[in-house]
Amino acid sequence: MQKTFRIIDEDGIHARPATALVNTATKFKGTEAFAEAKGKKVTLKSILGVLSLGLEPGDTLTLITDGSEETEALSALQEVMIKEGLGELNE
C-alpha cells in the first residue's frame, strides 16, 4: 500500500517529526515501511535514512507499507504526517 504526501512544514522533515515517523513505523514489527522521494527509497525504521532524503517544503514523499498490518501502519503514519504539520495528502 502507499500514499503520497506533499511536504508543507517550512523546515522540511526535521528531527522531531522524523523521530515520530520512525517510532510509529517501528511499532509495526511484522510490517515493512519505506519512504520514497527524489528517486530514493529508504526504510522508515531508520531516522538517518529518513533525514538522508533531505526533504524540503514542496517535495513529494511516498510512504509505502507492506505486511500483515500494512493498512493500520499506513493510517498511523498518515496521522503523524498530518498531526506534526509535516505534509498534506497529495491527491
Binding site: 528531527a15 523521530t19 520512525v22 517510532n23 526504510t43 525504521k45 531508520s46 531516522i47 538517518l48 535514512g49
Partner: peptide, 16 residues
C-alpha cells in the same frame, strides 16, 4: 528533551 529522543533513535538505527 526531544533532541535526546532523536539521539536515542540514532543509536538504534539499523542504517548506522
Amino acid at each position: 528533551a526531544e533532541i535526546f529522543e532523536s539521539h536515542l533513535l540514532i543509536l538504534d538505527d539499523p542504517e548506522l
